[in-house]
């Protein structure tokens, strides 16, 4: 059934593509959420050396993946420094690991400004990681702005939850 579904999806995608004119530029960024399975094959994570288990180990700081921000701010707060630096060291020590950093904002204010603010949030984590020894090529920072909220409430606790950079490892 899964196979049939995917065949239909491919038909559908090619049908949609043929309805448009040719894009002038190629899609340059890979997508992580769309094909995590495919990403896992090429990644060192799927083979799972002992160090990689630390990423899922609830006792390890590496299992923590979200950096939260104050309203209007993209500064990584002191309480998240250790978390970011632990991931930076992990990337430094595991050159075939790589991460996607997704910056998010709460729903208030301009969507375009929030898109830019989310980018700065992701970039703030990326900068801290590269300064701590991770390589630039291991880290991709993108913004989802306010478009993909984790919680959809319209209150302070929901907003705080959505002001966030997520650290996603390829192949998990």
């Amino acid at each position: 059934m899964k196979k049939i579904c995917s065949v239909f999806m491919i038909c559908l995608l090619s049908a949609c593509a043929s309805q448009e004119t040719q894009p002038t530029a190629e899609v340059v960024e890979r997508s992580i959420g769309a094909d995590e399975g495919a990403a896992a094959e090429g990644s060192g994570l799927a083979t799972g050396g002992p160090t990689f288990h630390a990423l899922q180990d609830p006792d390890s700081i590496l299992s923590q993946r979200s950096v939260y921000y104050d309203y209007d701010s993209y500064t990584v707060k002191n309480e998240y420094r250790e978390l970011v630096l632990a991931h930076a060291r992990f990337l430094r020590d595991n050159p075939n690991a790589d991460v996607l950093l997704q910056g998010n904002t709460d729903e208030r204010g301009s969507r375009e400004y929030n898109l830019a603010l989310g980018q700065r949030r992701a970039d703030s984590v990326k900068n801290m990681m590269t300064l701590a020894g991770a390589r630039d090529a291991q880290i991709e920072s993108v913004s989802l702005g306010e478009e993909k909220p984790r919680t959809t409430g319209h209150d302070e606790s929901s907003w705080a939850e959505n002001r966030r950079t997520d650290i996603l490892y390829h192949g998990e």
């Binding site: 448009e20 002038t24 530029a25 340059v28 980018q119 993108v142």
Partner: peptide, 12 residues
Amino acid sequence: GERRIVANFKGS
């Protein structure tokens, strides 16, 4: 309804 990409550079 014809559409095409105008800006699709690395990043946003």
